[in-house]
Amino acid sequence: MHVYLTTAAAVWGLVTGGFALPRAAYRLSVEPDLPWRDARGWLGRGPGGVPLAVVCAVACAAVALRVGARPELGVWLLLVPAGALMARVDLAVLRLPDVLTLPAGAVTSAGLGVCALLPGHGGSWPRALLGGAALFTLYFLLHLINPAGMGFGDVKLAPALGMALGWYGWGAVLAGTLAGFALGAMAGLTLLALRRADRKTAIPFGPFMLLGALGGVLLAAGW
């Protein structure tokens, strides 16, 4: 069962990452206050399709292998491609568009609410909502303290990640959040050591938030 489920998830990630996301990534990768790039529709091939396909396939397969046939797997398989798209845009232009972050929060909340009504689920919906609120509060405070270091797009992404982690427990929230900060710090120090950045260089934090949350979910799903 796990083999078929993992294979199906990998194929889902390959298809979404390779054929559904690249054009959207191209259109959304513009500086703030600029209109989206013109293209024929939002779904379809575009630049960077192969990396997106590989990332989505690997991440979806890993989640399916770890979570198994629990109801929440459907929510994760929607969030993984969305997260890959957000990371791609953030890396390109240092922004997390509202058109991605806000629906991600809504889908996570509603999807996990439905999962909580189904047999065999592995988490708690009320705790997920509290986790989303906690992570939003943390990132909002960090934004107030240092707006240049913590963009408001990161703040808007935080609720979705907090809910995903909170679904499995407060230990997952802590682990996933700390992992994101640790990965971001390691990347920053590496760039400084290689002289590819200085203390004033802006570094996209969204990809590290997403990687940390993915790691937290993978770790906690088997608890």
Rank of each mutant, 00 (worst) to 15 (best):
V15Y: 08
T16Y: 07
T16Q: 10
G17P: 04
G17L: 04
G18A: 06
G18Q: 05
F19M: 09
F19K: 06
A20N: 03
A20W: 00
L21V: 02
L21D: 03
R23E: 03
A24S: 11
A25G: 09
L28V: 09
V30W: 08
E31S: 12
E31I: 15
P32I: 11
P32T: 06
P32D: 05
D33H: 15
D33Y: 13
L34G: 06
L34H: 13
L34E: 12
W36C: 13
W36F: 15
W36G: 09
D38S: 14
D38Y: 15
A39I: 15
A39G: 11
R40Y: 13
R40V: 15
R40G: 11
G41Y: 12
G41H: 13
W42R: 04
L43I: 15
G44W: 09
R45W: 15
G46S: 05
P47W: 04
P47L: 08
P47C: 10
G48R: 03
G48N: 05
V50W: 11
L52D: 02
L52Y: 01
L52C: 02
L52N: 00
A53R: 00
A53S: 03
V54P: 12
V55K: 03
V55P: 01
V55G: 04
V55M: 05
C56W: 03
V58L: 08
A59H: 07
C60N: 12
C60S: 14
C60Q: 09
C60T: 09
A62P: 13
A62C: 13
A62F: 09
A62W: 08
V63F: 13
V63C: 14
A64M: 08
A64R: 06
L65P: 12
R66C: 15
V67S: 13
V67A: 15
V67E: 12
V67I: 14
G68Y: 03
A69Q: 07
A69E: 07
A69N: 06
P71Y: 02
L73C: 04
L73G: 01
L73Q: 02
G74D: 11
G74T: 11
G74Y: 07
G74I: 06
W76S: 13
L79T: 04
V80Y: 07
V80C: 12
A82Q: 05
A82I: 05
A82C: 10
G83I: 07
G83P: 08
G83E: 12
G83D: 13
A84I: 00
L85S: 01
M86Q: 08
A87K: 00
A87S: 08
V89R: 00
D90H: 02
D90V: 00
D90L: 01
D90C: 05
L91F: 08
A92Y: 00
V93D: 06
V93T: 13
V93Q: 10
L94N: 14
R95E: 02
R95L: 05
R95T: 05
D98E: 13
D98C: 10
L100E: 01
L100I: 07
T101Y: 06
T101C: 09
P103F: 10
P103H: 11
A104F: 07
A104E: 10
G105F: 09
G105C: 12
V107I: 14
